[in-house]
Design a protein around this nucleic acid. Sequence first.
DNA 1: AATTATTAGTTGCACTTGCAACCAAAAACA
DNA 2: TGTTTTTGGTTGCAAGTGCAACTAATAATT
Lengths: 148, 148
Amino acid sequence: MTIKSDPYDSLVFLTNRVGRLLSNEVRKKLEEEGGPQILQTTHIGVLVDLWVQDGVRQQDLAVSTIKDKGTITRTLNFLEQENLVVRVTDRSDKRNKRIYLTHKGKEMEHRLLPYAEHATVGATDGISPEELRVCKDVLARLYKNLIK
Amino acid sequence: MTIKSDPYDSLVFLTNRVGRLLSNEVRKKLEEEGGPQILQTTHIGVLVDLWVQDGVRQQDLAVSTIKDKGTITRTLNFLEQENLVVRVTDRSDKRNKRIYLTHKGKEMEHRLLPYAEHATVGATDGISPEELRVCKDVLARLYKNLIK
DNA sequence: AATTATTAGTTGCACTTGCAACCAAAAACA
DNA sequence: TGTTTTTGGTTGCAAGTGCAACTAATAATT
């Protein structure tokens, strides 16, 4: 008897698809409720990182957001233009540019995060808080394991 | 006392980042071990869907893979060119094009899936099988809930 | 100290993607 | 039956992305 593997029971596909679906939900909510105009997923990803820790280098952002260095460069060009962040060349090592949130950038946290957190209402039907908790914890640990 | 929300404890960010990390792992493994030359994530996503069910319409693929119709059109142009799938115009409704795997396309399943499934070794350090099981189940239910 | 290697960030290029406009076929409606 | 609306798929366009080549600054090696 051959056991046919279920392609859907694979973390790669599950995370990617659920991730995109949730992103789309957030994007839709933002538009509906006239939220902030920064809709690019990468923009938000970078901001999220900066909310956790300020003053990191572009390279660090590239690693944690899992984007190319070049992509981060261009993302920051935009965020800087929008007065959400500033680039400061590191005194002691002029290769590094440290990224800091502006006042406007910090404010954005309170406006944006609720959308990201509440995007799951409705999606979690039939899922207990405990299960959800485990799921998030596992994902967080996977992230830590994989981020090198 | 104000409780600072943790941006990382959000399903949107966790799934997206873990998803990308895992995709990159699979891509790397494929290259290292001289696997199939189809590296595009979208290509693989479409194939996965077809392994689950053959003969669906492009529109169905767009929904389940969460990609734009246009993207699916172009993805199928490629897969058809590679002799992995064929498009068959539906007799009873000429708007529909049914997508079928070729022999080569079916073969690919056995070659590709192991990469996707085993990509998690090393990543799951410190995570029990039970926890992983719950995580996958939750993700699967989220997917079903969100896919409309 | 001078040369070489490495690292951070930028830029050009090719490719992917989503959106919107479009075409063809079918369904709904008058 | 003829007109309008909806649906599936394709295409043009603009924006995002990864890769590789490049520059500037620092570290490592001789």
